[in-house]
Design a protein around this nucleic acid. Sequence first.
DNA 1: AGTCAATAGTTAGCTAACTATCTATTTTTG
DNA 2: CAAAAATAGATAGTTAGCTAACTATTGACT
Lengths: 146, 146
Amino acid sequence: MATSQFDLDSCIMCITSRSSKLFASKFNDALAPMGINRSAWMALYYIDQQAKIRQRDLADLIGITGPSMVKIVNQLSADDLITVAVSAKDRRARLLTLTPAGEDLLARSIPLAEAFRQQVTAGIPQADLDTLDRVMDQMMANANTL
Amino acid sequence: MATSQFDLDSCIMCITSRSSKLFASKFNDALAPMGINRSAWMALYYIDQQAKIRQRDLADLIGITGPSMVKIVNQLSADDLITVAVSAKDRRARLLTLTPAGEDLLARSIPLAEAFRQQVTAGIPQADLDTLDRVMDQMMANANTL
DNA sequence: AGTCAATAGTTAGCTAACTATCTATTTTTG
DNA sequence: CAAAAATAGATAGTTAGCTAACTATTGACT
């Protein structure tokens, strides 16, 4: 029949679904030599940006739920890449900090992430990248009102 | 330390990861009244566009793997929304077609999908949406060379 | 001070995708 | 034409995320 007026191929939901799957997969591949995966790497990155970050705040930064964060924190801790300390001010909270091994791993992997970013955005004018950022922000804000 | 020069927040990998999660979730919510989820709906959409589509080609259109497609096809068939027929020309292949019930469900849900699209893109100039499409295509092409 | 609501993190179990591997069939090639 | 390679789909098991429900702790309001 093909009766519909709706164009699914150009729907933002499909575009982001495919691209995020692709980018996540390729970024994982890029990090593979470091023996770490994408979400663990993002955690290291944000803990480096803000030492003694709360587990909850880290989950918010990465954009995953609390329970999803638990597994990642446990693994990073088991691998001695981070330390986990109970906050003195709020004993519910766990404060995360990089170990020297974590700092080292992150430092060695930053060039891989930067190379990934450059390769993916190759040949695209900065103005277009800015437009993309702005439009995505607007669409996410719109979606959040639904 | 915060030593890195790399800005993860503005990395396309993170932006698409968060947005695709959000859009998929909201689109699922939008379809919930129809008793169908996002991937099943996408399958119905493409089968409507092309009757007697092969299962393999449908998976490629949706952007999922063969095994992921199997479950969706089985469920749609069990729900009598599609028929599955062995191809006469290639007995390995399964040809998918909408049943009247499938056509009906799709027709009733198209307005929901169109409303979703309009709400998410509200207030965004068409030129910016075009730029986004073009830039995403280019970045995906770039990523595929990695 | 005592109760009630909110917050941080955990656990258990679910979902929707994935990879690896299998069978059946078709196509290619020596 | 027979053997080998490729393709379509199915099955089994894995993964990374999720929600719901729980404990421990804190803050707010009588």
